[in-house]
Design a protein around this nucleic acid. Structure first.
Lengths: 166, 166
DNA sequence: CCTGACTCTAACGTTAACGTAAGAGTCTGA
DNA sequence: TCAGACTCTTACGTTAACGTTAGAGTCAGG
């Protein structure tokens, strides 16, 4: 089965939709932002994309996962255009990625810490299973029963116990 | 130095602002959403918070880092109210966190993959430093010079090389 | 008791990333 | 050639998470 619906080997927006999982609106939107551009148009005005566009759309997707906003990506692309020579442009790209690598590592560290906290909280809460079922919720505040082996409630648990909820 | 500005031991919104780094508007907003509530008010109508509120605000902050939206948090809190008995409520909390733990781990895996890709791309781009500086950018497409030891450009790099940019 | 700092409510504004609908024109295969 | 599927532009709508006035009232110290 072929990827394209026209002879030209070019993709109409519907093809791209199928190949990327994006909606037409999203692709239009990317174009509005200057992230994308059809190679040409049919006489009727239908957009025709080259296959590289597929790479481009996936690239955008990855960058979004990395936490880039579309305006940021756009920003980078336009700044890239300003460099006519490859090595210089590639240096820019490298810098761009280097910054993001650092951020990604920071995010990873944060998430790992949160992962530990979640696990701690879940462990702590498991102690509650051995508690008398009819214990009223209010009595959980500062619980120091044997069920938790003397452990204090982790922050993620303690904050749930209060009068701060409407 | 004391944390509070009133004798009551209660915190006015300004105190909470200093202690949490949030803005008054944010705290008002949390209250609108039902995430927060002052313990009482002054006769003039000023909000007075207990110290637990500090925990609560930080808790919200952490949950946000974990990718919870405020409506989600609100949702959880109200569902928690429906359980009068501690152990049952705590079970709910545990479930809530268990789901999020799985998501967090998935996110971690994704980010780790992206981290590798970034590193790969940076490594690949380092090869460009030994390229003739005046090479035009267009010639980078499908570059197969010795500079990259025969490696093909990683996706994060390849997608930048095309005619898809306006 | 008065002033300067603080707080209140109400309501409109903002950014990101699209969604949705409308009305009209285009393409293509039977 | 013509119906059904696809696409076009325009433009208003949406959710999240606050920001930003605006105008008025409140508190605390000198």
């Amino acid at each position: 089965m072929n990827t394209t619906s026209c002879e030209s080997g070019l993709l109409k927006i519907g093809d791209l939709v199928r190949l990327t999982g994006k909606t037409p609106r999203t692709l239009h939107f990317y174009e509005e932002l200057g992230l994308l551009r059809p190679v040409s148009r049919t006489k009727g005005g239908f957009r025709l994309y080259g296959e590289e566009t597929l790479l481009r759309v996936r690239w955008i997707e990855r960058l979004q996962e990395l936490g880039f906003s579309l305006p940021e990506i756009q920003d980078f692309l336009t700044r890239l255009q300003e460099h006519a020579y490859g090595p210089e442009a590639m240096q820019r790209l490298g810098d761009f990625y280097t910054v993001k690598l650092a951020e990604t590592r920071a995010t990873l560290a944060r998430l790992q810490a949160l992962e530990r906290d979640l696990q701690d909280s879940i462990d702590y809460l498991n102690g509650c299973r051995t508690c008398e079922p009819l214990t009223h919720r209010a009595r959980c505040v500062g619980c120091d029963t044997k069920h938790h082996e003397g452990r204090a409630a982790p922050e993620l648990v303690a904050a749930v116990h209060d009068s701060t909820t409407p």
